[in-house]
Design a protein around this nucleic acid. Sequence first.
DNA 1: CTGAAAGCGCTAACAC
DNA 2: GTGTTAGCGCTTTCAG
Lengths: 355, 355
Amino acid sequence: MLLLLQSLAHLGIHLPMITIKDIARELGLSISTVGRALTDHPRISRETKERVQEAAERLGYVANTAARVMRGGSSHLISLLVPDIRSEFYSMVAHILSTGFESEGYHLTLSITDDDPNREMQQMRELMSARVAGVVIVPSANPRRETAEMLSKIPHVQLLRRIASLGDWFGLDDEQAIVDAANHLIGLGHKKIAYIGDNTFPTGKARYKGFRRAMTEAGLKIDDSLVLLGPPELKFGTEAVHKLVQGRKPATAIITGAVLVTLGVAEQLSKLNVKVPNQISIVGFGDGPWQRWWGPGLTTLKLPIEEITTGCALWLLHRLKTSRQQGKDPHIAVSPTTLVIRNSTAAPKSTRVLR
Amino acid sequence: MLLLLQSLAHLGIHLPMITIKDIARELGLSISTVGRALTDHPRISRETKERVQEAAERLGYVANTAARVMRGGSSHLISLLVPDIRSEFYSMVAHILSTGFESEGYHLTLSITDDDPNREMQQMRELMSARVAGVVIVPSANPRRETAEMLSKIPHVQLLRRIASLGDWFGLDDEQAIVDAANHLIGLGHKKIAYIGDNTFPTGKARYKGFRRAMTEAGLKIDDSLVLLGPPELKFGTEAVHKLVQGRKPATAIITGAVLVTLGVAEQLSKLNVKVPNQISIVGFGDGPWQRWWGPGLTTLKLPIEEITTGCALWLLHRLKTSRQQGKDPHIAVSPTTLVIRNSTAAPKSTRVLR
DNA sequence: CTGAAAGCGCTAACAC
DNA sequence: GTGTTAGCGCTTTCAG
């Protein structure tokens, strides 16, 4: 019989799933007894439990999540909303979350927003409809009000990017990161430092602020023609390099303020055969395997992704257990970045000549 | 009232969701009328539909997927099971699938198997329980029988790796890929070619077979001490390089037969300061940004990921529409790889000396 | 210890 | 054009 069913399945005939009712009929028990046996209810005899267990396995019974959810139970689904999972950044996040949640009985769903507030809202609608237990979101620059409303109804955490009105957040010390990068260059004697980064997202603004702060504190003037602000995308990085190269005022160093921008800039510098660090120094944002191999090795800001993602996961799981949140201030966790110095940064030519 | 509800929500008090019943009460209509209005039923007056629509939006109604699923409807969930989403490879797959499915009203869930058959089985149980509509799986080397049984009950496709008994598959022409790589090296005059790859998965076996075939067809002897077989992981790649370097018989070229192995080998060659292609040539497996920048530029096999993933997505969506599969042979789609020649391959020293 | 029955939210067959 | 009702699979009272 079982074999027959399987061969039917192999033919692509998808049979109805086995339910608690089937087991009850098979064993001549009532539905509720079977249900209790399956949930290890104390007032069920061991013998009955064993019989039920055996029958369940034999018939290939799989509990129906939908039914549980309908009764007000959890979907055991936690969703991750990111702009683009191809980023090594976000794929690392997804991996950690998926692994971490699974061990707690939760399952990860993945939504790509492409930084489009409408897609983001649409995805959130789906998630609300599926009654996801929780959400980890890297929000777009300007989430729709409806998105915020939906989020407010379920446990959620922001990751990396922060929209103040959305509550809890785990992220980087963005401003200080760029301050560190700039100070490193300033310490090497650079004065004409270009900044290529984002100014759309709060994180981007913070990084840019860090750049200005470091320059100001060092008593250096910021040359506006060396500040290129745009979306945190690979394409913007490549274009920015073009502009920089074509501009009259030469920079002796570049700081990039976003992961993909760094990739675009690096790619373009290679393509244009710019000598690093002879012609120009560069400090990147984000570290991984390729940053070690690119040109002379990229001096870059290493981001504590594992750290903040793990923190984020633990926090959300905690929130899911303690159903009711304290009506307190949002939880904010800021993690520091680390400047990894390789060979893409050196003293500027003029300085070295003067020495 | 609405404002009150929202402020409550902001305090973390998660209210019960609005149901079709609430709308009915609000409007003094019956439940079924509201239900029909929401699904744009023909026999409902326009006026009623508009009133219902308005009320639904005002109250923030979100349909309950669980209820739909319980009635035999689709969960609109499609699952992707991969060993490790951090691979640029699989994250690309995830991105394409998520985007592609979303436009068809499906949502992607992500399961990490870590190539562990038990985790794989456990994940599948969860998915069956959640009544996912379909599954895209990169199977582990030896899936548990129960995993196969569960898969047989729902529409599914294998991606990249293929277990014959699991049916439909979209993958690469693995054997031919390595034949191309080997022929390139053989054409350059290499005779002592090392192969570092996997021999656990069917795909790995096919690649290794390609290596042997190319060597045999060229009349070259395969030196077993130059064949290093192990799991398709970064660590194995680095270890393999160590063994190769310590071995007495020197290879003049390396072929790597897996993406992560390539990464490990490349990393290790850099670390050991091996001159490429002077001391040794190398052909990698898989292309991306870093392969261009690594050392002199890595000659490598470019994989048509977008192509096979898109094909895979379309096929699965098709299967979901035509509920009943033809009881025919499994659908097999093989896509060719492309050898991208950069500067990590050159004629072996001895040959050049002789010229 | 076990059974009967209600109800979660929605859809659809059946009234009117 | 709209209302009534049954039932999807499961949990959870309430009865034995």
